[in-house]
Amino acid sequence: MSEEPRTREGWRPALAGELRERLDAWSGRTGIAVETWALPGEEASAEVAGAVLAVLEEALANVERHSRARVVSVAVTLGRGGLRMTVSDDGAGFAGQAAGRGVDAMRDRFEALGGTLSVHGVKGEGTTVTGTLPRR
């Protein structure tokens, strides 16, 4: 995906707009509905925005490949405590631990910025990816 221009050194404007555009394009391409619960109302650093967009793309790729979902729900909030991101689907889910290169890549991306990421599934109910990044 293309990089959005930066208005200030190290800052990327309109993360919410870029998230919305990517979610709309993905939904249109896959036919899977997207519910957007929340998007950030303020700017994020280029590092944080890059991590969020990369994790979102991997989470959506996993939904498309594995879940058989009809709906994906997304919430990304940014406040005094930092950033929180949730991507949840109503698909097949899974039992046991989430594993694989994609899960490792998502986790590594958030951990590199001091954050955490977890993936939880319930067989027959869906999967939820939740990540947090501290405020810098």
Rank of each mutant, 00 (worst) to 15 (best):
G82C: 11
E9N: 15
S27K: 07
D108N: 11
T127F: 02
R8C: 11
P13V: 01
A44L: 11
V72E: 08
K123V: 10
G126S: 10
E57S: 13
A99L: 14
G82T: 13
E4W: 13
E9C: 13
A14G: 14
F110A: 15
V72S: 02
T130A: 09
R65F: 07
G31Q: 04
P40D: 14
R20V: 04
G96H: 00
E4N: 12
E47D: 15
N62L: 05
S67E: 00
R80P: 15
E21T: 15
E125R: 14
R109H: 07
T36L: 07
E47G: 10
S118G: 09
L56Q: 01
R109P: 02
S73D: 13
P5W: 06
R29Q: 14
A75P: 03
H66F: 10
G17D: 14
W37L: 14
T130L: 05
A112V: 02
R22D: 09
V119I: 00
E3F: 13
D104Q: 15
E21Y: 06
F94R: 06
A75D: 00
L60K: 03
V63S: 05
R101H: 14
T7N: 12
G114N: 09
T132V: 10
A59F: 02
E64F: 03
A92C: 08
G100E: 03
L19W: 01
G124M: 10
A51M: 02
A38D: 04
G17Q: 11
T7F: 13
L15A: 03
